[in-house]
Design a protein around this nucleic acid. Structure first.
Lengths: 347, 347
DNA sequence: CAAAGATGTCGAAACGGCTTCTCGGCCTGC
DNA sequence: GCAGGCCGAGAAGCCGTTTCGACATCTTTG
C-alpha cells in the first residue's frame, strides 16, 4: 500500500492505529466522508457509506472515541473509587455498578486505591485528567478539597455508603436495621446482647454500631461491644473470641457485616455452641455466602443492583441539572430470615 | 473574568472543564508556557512556572490526558474484560490487576460483560474506540476475529486462564495439580474417587477435569464424574447431591474450584458425613474462604498478585517488542494443606 | 569597553484524529 | 436551460505538545 506511516524509521515509536484518513484513502473519499459514514443521520449516499464501511472493515478501523470526545467534551469514562474491590459486599456493588454503567454506554474505570487522603486525591487527579464524566466513590472519606476540585471541573460525584452533605449520596438505612435487630432480640427475651463491630469502622459501620447500642439500651438490654481490627472474617473471629470466651456470654450478637458474622459463627461453633439454639446471630449485607448451608445467616439485605441503578439514575439527573442541591437517597434494608435467628412471625 | 465560555447562551451544553487556555490567561502567559510548566524538564523560568502553577491551583486545572494522549498516541487506558468480576478467584485476580496497573501508571477499565462472542466483540470495540493500550482477558473465549482486530490496531493482548496460541497468555498448570490430587488420593488407598466439575466449563476447568480422570484411570481408580450447571457454590451443591446420595459414594472428591468444593462439603455435612473422616476434599484456587474454619479446605493455590505482576510484565515486554512471538507463562500451583484432606507427609 | 557569540525564555504555529459547518459541483426535474 | 437538492471536499476547532524562531540577557573576546 501507499501508507508508510513511520515504518522504515529507526525509531520504533508507537504504532499508530488505523485512522479515518487511512480509511478515506482506501475507500477513495475524503476524511469527512468517513466521519459522516459513522455518524448516524448524516448525509451520505448509501453507496458511499457502504464503500467506506467495507474499507473500515478491511482495515479494522474503529472511531477514536478519545478524539471524538475531545471535541464533544465527553469521554464516556466514569470513575469508580474503591478500596479492596474484591471483598464482601463491595465486590458485588462494584460489579453491579460496572454493569449498569456499561449498559448506559459508559466506560467504567476502576480505581483500586487505599483510604488515605493522598491516595484519594491522586485517584481523583487521574480521573479528572482523563476527563471522567463522573466519579462514584464506594469507600473512603474524601477531604473537602476533593469535592471542591470536582465542583470546579464540573464533575458530578456520587458517594455511596456515607452521608455527605456536599455531594449526591446513597446510603442504606443501617440505623433502622440495627434498631430492628436489637428490638427483635429483646422481643425474644434476650437481655444479654453482643455487638461485633470493627475498629476500622467507616461512618456506615459506626452508624450501625451506635444505633444497635442505643436501641438495646433503650429497651433495657445489656450490650457487650467488641471490635475486631478489620471489617472482615478475621475481625469476626477476633470479635467472636472476645464475646464468646467470657463468663456472661451474650445470647445474641448483631454483626455490622456478614463477613464478621461468619467469623463470629465459626468461632462460636468451634467453641461448641449451636446456632441458633445457643446463640443467635444477625448480619448485614446479605452476600451470597450468607445463604450457604454452613451459615444460613439471617441478615439485612443490601441489593447491589438496586443501588447501582439508583447511582446511575443520580448521574443522569445530575448531568441534566448540574445545579440541583445535593440529593440523598436512603434505602431500606429488609431482613432476610434464615437459620441463624428466626424472629417470631409477628415481630 | 473575561472568560465567558458559552455562559449566556440558551444551550446549557456541557460545561467544559478548565483548560490550559484559561490558566494561560489567568497567568498572563501563552498556552505553550502552561504546557511547558507541566512538562518536567521543559525550559521555563522558575518564576513563570510558579506563576502558572499558582493560577492552575486557583482554577483547579488538571492537564487533559485525553488530549495529551491524542498527540502522544497513548491513552494509558488498559482494558480488563471479565465476566462476573465479583465472584470467586476472578474477583481477586481482577482486583490485583487493577492495583498492579494503577501502580504502573495505567488507568484500568473494567468491562463487565457476558461470555458470548457478540459481547466480547462489543467490549473490544469499546476498548479499541478508547484506544486502550492493551487488553487483558480474564474470561471467555474470544473468536479469532478478536485477535485479528487487536493485531491490526496494534493492541497488545494478554489472555489469562486459557491456552491461546494467537496471543500472550498466562495459565496455571491445572493439569499437574489435578494429577497430583488424583495420585494423593490413590496413595491414601482411596479407589472410589469423585470429580466435581462444571457444565459451563471453560478450557481451564476442563483441563483439570480431564487430567484428574486420566491420572485416576492410570492408577486404577474409579472416578464418578459429575457436573453442576455452573462453576459456583450452587453447582457444588448439585455435584454434591449427585456424588454423595448414591450407593457407591466416593471416598474423596476433587473439585475443579473452591466454590464448588464448598458446595460439595456443605452437602456432604448435611448428609451427615464428616470431613475428612468420611470424605476427603481437594479444591482449586485457594480463595480466602478456603481458610475459614467452616471449611479448612485443602486446595491448590493460585496467587492473584503473582499472576497480575506477570501480566503487567508481559504488557511491558510486548509494548517494547511488539513483534515477538506469543509468550506463554505457566504457573505451578502449590497444594495448601488444611483439614479437608491431609496427605501423608512424604507423598 | 564594544561587539560578537552563547544561553535561556517565551510566543506563534503546526500537528494529532475527529466532528461539523460551509461552499461548490453535479444530477435531477420541469 | 435553469432552479433546487444532494453529496463531497475543505477548513476550522477541540486541547494539548513541540518545533522554530525572536528576543533578551549574559559571557566571551579583541
Amino acid at each position: 500500500m501507499t501508507a508508510d506511516r513511520n515504518s522504515g524509521d529507526k525509531t520504533p515509536d508507537k504504532i499508530r492505529s488505523v485512522s479515518a484518513l487511512h480509511v478515506a484513502r482506501q475507500a477513495g473519499v475524503s476524511r469527512s466522508a468517513v466521519s459522516r459514514a459513522f455518524t448516524p443521520g448524516a448525509s451520505v449516499a448509501t453507496e458511499t457509506r457502504e464503500k467506506i464501511m467495507r474499507a473500515a472493515e478491511e482495515l479494522g478501523y474503529q472511531v477514536n472515541d478519545l478524539a471524538r470526545g475531545l471535541l464533544a467534551n465527553q469521554s464516556r469514562l466514569v470513575g469508580l473509587v474503591v478500596t479492596k474491590p474484591e471483598v464482601g459486599f463491595r465486590a458485588h456493588l462494584a460489579a453491579a455498578l460496572t454493569k449498569a454503567l456499561i449498559h448506559r454506554g459508559n466506560v467504567p474505570v476502576l480505581i483500586n486505591t487505599g483510604q488515605t487522603e493522598q491516595e484519594l486525591i491522586a485517584a481523583q487527579k487521574t480521573l479528572l485528567g482523563h476527563r471522567a464524566e463522573a466519579t462514584i466513590i464506594l469507600s473512603g472519606s474524601p477531604p473537602s478539597s476533593f469535592f471542591e476540585l470536582a465542583r470546579r471541573n464540573g464533575q458530578p460525584l456520587v458517594v455511596i455508603g456515607r452521608s455527605e452533605p456536599e455531594a449526591d449520596h446513597i446510603q442504606t438505612d443501617g440505623a433502622a436495621a440495627a434498631k430492628l435487630a436489637a428490638s427483635h432480640f429483646v422481643a425474644h427475651g434476650m437481655t444479654r446482647l453482643g455487638l461485633a463491630g470493627s475498629l476500622s469502622g467507616t461512618p456506615t459501620i459506626t452508624e450501625r454500631e451506635d444505633a444497635f447500642c442505643a436501641e438495646a439500651k433503650r429497651l433495657g438490654a445489656e450490650v457487650a461491644v467488641v471490635r475486631g481490627n478489620d471489617t472482615d472474617y478475621a475481625g469476626g473471629l477476633q470479635a467472636g473470641r472476645l464475646l464468646i470466651d467470657r463468663s456472661d456470654r451474650p445470647q445474641a450478637i448483631f454483626c455490622v457485616n456478614d463477613l464478621i458474622a461468619f467469623g463470629v459463627m465459626d468461632h462460636a461453633r468451634q467453641a461448641g455452641l449451636a446456632i441458633p439454639e445457643d446463640l443467635s446471630v444477625i448480619g448485614f449485607d446479605d452476600v451470597p455466602e450468607a445463604g450457604w448451608l454452613a451459615y444460613r445467616l439471617t441478615t439485612f439485605r443490601q441489593d447491589p443492583e438496586l443501588m447501582a441503578a439508583k447511582a446511575v439514575e443520580l448521574l443522569d439527573l445530575r448531568q441534566r441539572q448540574p445545579d440541583l442541591a445535593p440529593i440523598r437517597e436512603r434505602f431500606n434494608v429488609p431482613l432476610v430470615v434464615r437459620g441463624s435467628f428466626v424472629p417470631h412471625h409477628a415481630e
